[in-house]
């Protein structure tokens, strides 16, 4: 196995594109090293992206936040402004693993590991995030919900990697939240996860809503119908029930060691409703 730590996007792409064997990018390594240890992958090349400046910085611009894909969860948590704008997203990112994992794990890694249960993805969907991808053909943007295609499979082509996330600024009347269900209080992979981003008008009526779900299908979902169910409401019971129905209808989970199909479908609705209540509160304050 070869290890490279390039300092530019171009150099990283060149290395990845030229490798004939299995190449992996390394950011926080909290998934990659486990996969290597358990013989799930035996890469010929590992490209450490942490020396590339753009990937390690968070900037706030007029169009929103640009979060480097290799920024760790612990660093993200310390960004007071980001937390004020998108508390749900920061909370989701901070649910990935333990304090120790937070010291290394990144948003880019959580996305590109392409697990249906990744905590940050539903929250990124709720926040309407896009990703900036760099590759042999240059840069392109993709909506976050379009990156993961299936377990361990992304829309990235050979030589491509995610450089940063773009998240719009939170306007007045917007709020987000992410909740997940796990059997313990920490250290588990989400059995279901729900991220909600809401926009309300001054009277409290929801004018837009985005709902992302994790661990209920072969990839994280953006459930448009669920968000639409809330629009026009003040999060009254009827609207929430409709949203919950839409959430459950979108779930196509599996039975596994972490939960049953019935449980996931049921609890996805419960968690989404609870997250919506938090997001609504945040939108109104």
């Amino acid at each position: 196995m070869r290890y490279e730590a390039p300092e530019t996007l171009e150099a990283a792409t060149a290395l990845l594109a030229a490798e004939m064997g299995i190449a992996r990018v390394l950011a926080g390594g909290t998934d990659l090293l486990v996969q290597m240890k358990t013989d799930m992958v035996d890469p010929a090349l590992v490209v450490d992206l942490k020396r590339i400046g753009e990937m390690r910085t968070i900037t706030k611009a007029v169009d929103g936040f640009h979060i480097g894909a290799a920024v760790s969860g612990a660093e993200l948590k310390e960004q007071v402004e980001l937390k004020q704008h998108w508390p749900g997203l920061v909370e989701a990112a901070n649910l990935i693993g333990s304090t120790q994992i937070q010291g290394r794990a990144t948003l880019g890694g959580n996305l590109c590991n392409a697990s249906p249960a990744a905590d940050s993805i539903p929250a990124l969907i709720a926040a309407n995030a896009t990703v900036s991808i760099f590759g042999p053909k240059g840069r392109r943007q993709l909506a976050v919900e379009d990156v993961v295609l299936a377990p361990r499979k992304t829309a990235l082509d050979k030589g491509e990697f995610v450089v940063s996330f773009h998240i719009p600024l939170r306007a007045k009347g917007m709020g987000d939240a992410y909740l997940r269900f796990i059997p313990r209080t920490e250290m588990d992979i989400a059995v279901v996860g729900a991220g909600i981003g809401l926009k309300t008008d001054p009277s409290g009526v929801i004018t837009a809503a985005r709902i992302g779900l994790g661990a209920v299908a072969s990839r994280p979902l953006h459930v448009k119908a669920a968000g639409d169910a809330l629009v026009g409401s003040k999060l009254d019971k009827a609207a929430v029930d409709k949203m919950v129905d839409a959430v459950r209808a979108a779930c196509k989970p599996i039975d596994d060691k972490r939960g049953t199909i019935e449980f996931r479908i049921k609890v996805a609705g419960v968690i989404a409703a609870r997250a919506a209540a938090i997001a609504y509160d945040r939108a109104r304050t």
Partner: peptide, 19 residues
């Protein structure tokens, strides 16, 4: 295997020595 790296708490089992 907890250690600190530049003051950050990490699992040393999930970091390459070269890093």
């Amino acid at each position: 295997c907890s250690v600190t790296v530049d003051g950050r708490l990490v699992c040393s089992c999930l970091m390459l020595g070269v890093e």
